[in-house]
């Protein structure tokens, strides 16, 4: 990551809008877990300023190819930049919080682990 790249990125403030895509495979327990976990985080920290799009790649394999999905579940943060990928059932909240640049209060929100 270059400095120029960083400058282009707006510091994540209270007004930054988030665009998130969650790619899951059917309604497996792990998929359901991931969907529930990410919703909980968004509702807790990004109320009113996020779009969460859940894609079932077993229904739409072309998306898996174009978005370079290998692991499932995968969460892709397209906005704000930089692009970040999170793989797993989204149970490690602190890692997601760091990755999404949401370090408000630092206290981790308890989520369910599969």
């Amino acid at each position: 990551m270059t400095n120029a790249h960083l400058e282009a990125v707006e510091p994540a403030g209270e007004t930054t809008h988030y665009v998130l895509h969650l790619y899951v495979t059917g309604s497996t327990p792990r998929s359901i877990q991931a969907i529930a976990n990410i919703r909980k985080i968004c509702e807790a920290h990004l109320v009113g300023r996020y779009d969460l799009d859940v894609v079932d790649i077993s229904e739409d394999p072309m998306r898996a190819q174009s978005e370079q999905i290998i692991a499932a579940p995968t969460l892709i943060k397209t906005l704000p930049l930089p692009l970040r990928r999170f793989i797993g059932d989204m149970s490690q909240t602190d890692r997601i919080m760091v990755g999404l640049d949401l370090r408000a209060g630092g206290a981790a929100i308890p989520t369910e682990r599969s």
């Binding site: 792990r30 877990q33 991931a34 976990n37 692991a71 499932a72 579940p73 995968t74 969460l75 930089p82 692009l83 970040r84 990928r85 999170f86 793989i87 797993g88 059932d89 989204m90 149970s91 490690q92 890692r95 997601i96 760091v98 990755g99 682990r113 599969s114």
Partner: peptide, 8 residues
């Protein structure tokens, strides 16, 4: 780009 956040 990748962050592990649980089982996958």
């Amino acid at each position: 780009e990748i962050e592990e956040t649980g089982e996958y």
